[in-house]
Amino acid sequence: MAISSSPTAINPAQPGIGLRAAHHGDVAERRPAVGFLEVHAENYMGGGRPIATLEALRRHYPLSVHGVGLSLASVEGLDLGHVNRLASLCARLEPALVSEHLAWNRAGGVYLNDLLPIPYSEEALGVVGDHVAMVQDRLKRRLLIENPSAYLRLRASVIPEAEFLAELVRRTGCGILCDVNNVYVNSRNHGGDPRAYLKALPASAVGEIHLAGHAINDADGQPVWIDDHGSPVAAAVWDLYAHAVRRFPHAVTLVEWDSNLPSLDTLTGEARTAARIRASVLLSELSYAHAA
């Protein structure tokens, strides 16, 4: 029997899903028609069943390894042990994509289990730029860096986020993972035009788009939009996604769902919706081009 090589390239026409442990069995058994699987790197840094499941699935799907623990913006430096664990995982899985966040979560030796905001400043650009470059050197591959959701803004921020990301791309050669739900949530919480944000990103650097649901909570009578990945993608975020597809037609798309995990069918249904919207946006672009 010939040994087939694993699929390593992602077709942007086929959106992927975030793979969570509760769906491992279903995905392995039913092999849904999705373009790729994305996993949180830290959940696969041990031995046993999780990594064995993924090694079996990678024969059928391209993988994307999405880290949450590198703390690229930590002023106290990278945890090199953790960078090495990520490098070993990537060597083992040979994913099509590796991504992380424009955020930090480690200070004074404590891991804060969140993606915390930084002030967008020249000082932060230096720190994040150095760390992205170090990780890319260690992994010998390009990282995609995701725009985070944030529930506060910092006085020390002097550079718009999209410009900060553009400068990071210029300095390090990294790519961008544009999470349109985060762009939307931030615009609701802090103001700003989400379409203008998409316009300000360097289009050629955007390699992936994230979609997820959010919640609208109440804080003392004030609505607050929370990026909880716990519900279907909101209508307004699908609208913004259509703009993102027009702007980043080559980017691959991923639907994430982390809390209140639905059935696999519901999740793959969201991925099919993304595929439909993407195709119809690109087709309409084509007809405009012909009409012009």
Partner: peptide, 29 residues
């Protein structure tokens, strides 16, 4: 430096519920 101070203070807010030091770094909302 600013970034270091931010991270020490936000850590204290999250881990120790010491909210006051970081509050002045936040844009009023």
């Amino acid at each position: 430096r600013t970034l270091h101070r931010h991270q020490v203070e936000l850590r204290a807010a999250i881990v120790e519920s010491a909210f006051a030091p970081f509050a002045s770094a936040i844009v009023p909302a």
